[in-house]
């Protein structure tokens, strides 16, 4: 029996990124699959990592990947559930190009009763030439299942 998808990253993203930290960064929906989500972080002059150098700071990539990972987990679970980042590793393999938007794609490859495991990459247009790789573990924090979406 087919069931309608309960969590749609495309419709959830504008809601989740309308305010708070994701809203401040201006993240947008880009693409998704069954267990992965890609978000876009548009280029912004005030997110530079070093004065005089047109290179995006690493902090926003961390935020982008954290957010894309959360969405990938909800997509893989096909529902919204409160989760918290436990551990997040980012390897910055090269600087993002000057003026380029950065895309963060994260895949949830395993969900257990209490944890969700993700891996992903950030790229600036070509996913075959990433700017960063990530790996993270999130914990389900349970609590009130009726709790509203963050940013709600």
């Amino acid at each position: 029996m087919s069931q309608q998808a309960a969590f749609d990253p495309k419709t959830a993203t504008p809601f989740l990124t309308s305010r708070g930290h994701p809203g401040w960064l201006g993240m947008r929906y880009s693409d998704h699959g069954d267990d992965w989500v890609e978000l876009e972080l548009p280029w912004r002059e005030d997110l530079l990592g070093e004065e005089g150098q047109h290179v995006l700071a690493s902090g926003p990539i961390l935020s982008l990947m954290d957010m894309a990972s959360g969405l990938a987990i909800w997509k893989a679970m096909d529902r919204f559930e409160a989760i918290a980042t436990l551990d997040l590793r980012v390897d910055y393999v090269r600087p993002a190009r000057d003026g380029a938007a950065v895309f963060g794609r994260s895949q949830c490859y395993r969900i257990t009763r209490s944890a969700a495991f993700v891996r992903g990459l950030a790229h600036d247009g070509d996913a075959d030439d990433p700017v960063a790789h990530i790996q993270a573990v999130f914990m389900k924090i349970g609590g009130d299942p009726k709790r509203e979406l963050p940013g709600g």
Binding site: H21, A84, T85
Partner: peptide, 22 residues
């Protein structure tokens, strides 16, 4: 402030990470 907020009344993991990195 709102720029660091994730789920209501809590820091976003990305903002905390940005603070650590900085």
């Amino acid at each position: 402030v709102e720029a660091v907020e994730g789920r209501p009344e809590h820091f976003h993991g990305g903002a905390t990470g940005g603070l650590l990195e900085t």
